[in-house]
Design a binder for these strands. Sequence first.
RNA 1: GCUGGUAUAGCUCAGUCGGUAGAGCAGCUCAUUCGUAAUGAGCAGGUCGCGGGUUCGAGUCCCAUUACCAGCUCCA
Length: 585
Amino acid sequence: MDKELFENGGNKAFWHTTSHIMAQAVKRLFPDVKLAIGPATDSGFYYDFDTDSSLTGEDLPTIEKEMKNIIKQGYKIERFELSRSEALELMKDEPYKIELINELPEGEIISFYKQGEFVDLCAGPHLERVSEVKAFKLMSVTGAYWRGSEKNKMLRRIYGSSYPDREMLDARIKELEEAKMRDHNRLGRELELFTTSEYIGQGLPILMPKGARVIQILQRFVEDEEERRGYQLTKTPLMAKSDLYKISGHWYHYREGMFIMGNEDDKEVFALRPMTCPFQFQAYLSKMRSYRDLPIRYGETSTLFRNEASGEMHGLIRLRQFTISEGHIVCTPDQLEDEFRGCIDLANFMLKAVGLDEDVSYRFSKWDENNKDKYIGSQSEWEQVQNTMREILDHIGIKYTEADGEAAFYGPKLDIQIKNVHGKEDTLITIQIDFQLAERFEMEYTDADGTKKFPYVIHRTSIGCYERTLALLIEKYAGALPTWLAPVQARVLPISEKHFDYAKKVEEELKRNGIRVENDGRSEKIGYKIREAQKQKIPYMLVVGDKEAENNEVAVRSRKEGDKGAVSLSDFIAMIKTEINERVN
RNA sequence: GCUGGUAUAGCUCAGUCGGUAGAGCAGCUCAUUCGUAAUGAGCAGGUCGCGGGUUCGAGUCCCAUUACCAGCUCCA
């Protein structure tokens, strides 16, 4: 297969064939393994095997060697079809294949692909010959549940990738290595933004002064912008009695995600809050509300606690304690669309401000009709609110995908998704329509006709969870955060001790102007100081020596563009202030 | 929670067959006072993640545990 065909959709068949070659090699080396499934992915392929004997990373080189053999043998790949009974007979020693065959609908063509001695149940398509696979690499061995359900047996999954030529594979490997260099979990620690402690526990990061500073800047930015948009800030408790969660339904629908303090027989059982909604609802409930009061927009910089399973935590992306730019809008049905639009507009404003707007996709997250117990509310209510949400989304005209079973237990969501450096997708921002909790909490308003009505509630975040957003910003900018967000914006680098006094003066002048500045007063050579500042990704290095001290100047070095030459101190201050105020990314 | 892997100095990593711990960088001291990505010399630094076990003897082998990594499941 040539490069062009590969890049224009041929890659799936290419990868799929490579997964068959791998399965063939595994079968030759470990005849007792049972085959599960082996599809192509976005960047390669995997195959799941069931084996009781060991199959670990150490086996990968042996498997790769056998794959090379198979490719050298150059088998032609042949497709053939069988009746259901013939298919079952052929696959009689492969229990997973039998399960798959039995589940194929009546009348469906049952096709197989054969290369040498290896035959696999498969819909195809495939390459014509195994020898077309010119370059491949097995990446890792991991576990994966059969059919993706934790109730089933865990199988052994081998990931790999392959290409029509060596250069493409090398390019891919290089890309993966570069991604690793951008990994926030590595860079964030290296740049002293955060750390962890095994004494504190998993999913509980310690934000170091520099990381805390970035989050503080983001928080102030968000709180100010929300105030401008008519939000009122609340500050509500981090925990509550179980009674609160019983009304909201968290006690029954979100229990395994909560940290609960005390036993059932204790008089009062408390729980750390996993969400802010029931708390802000109490603010709404504190007095009578009229339709004239609506919409009410509450915002809060809200710390939440969720008892994630131990294997789920990841850097600053999945945590047990995190702080979110939380908010709830209580509104009338007439106001719903405008308010929803306002939320999307705010989210997009934030994404654009931090430079992530090009990297996101929208997902309309619906409930799972086959799993109604997970949700509150009736089928017709869900259908109605989902239709409403779809109408709003279509009016706004954003492009979105639909996902079943991704809704919150109280309503559908618009999720703004983003991929991390490893290609894994996470939700950055979510906007949800809730048609259930207002009623549960008896949050009424008096309408113009004097009757009591239940409002809609929009649950939303404007910039998401600060820790996660920070993680994605680190990855986006490879640690070199835009000047307005950088924990240190400039560092003064005196050339020798003679220039310490002037350096101090420059430092103070910058501080007076609200610029976050450091002063490298060590007796090191200038090259060394530059190297360190550069490694710490400080936006501006200000070299000061005799010339600068004499003329009240600084020699500006940008981390991006290198030496920019000397400018007057006041000009530099004006320049960096403009860059900060305009939030240049 | 599950599968696989990892854990040695602040960081990156050596450590052979089980025989009593090593480098580079960082740190500290001294010298150097330097013009755009590493000045030199010296010093100090480790209960080998934590707890058991096997052994005359464990960084090394076994068990358990904590944390981290990749993935699954789950989610902001």
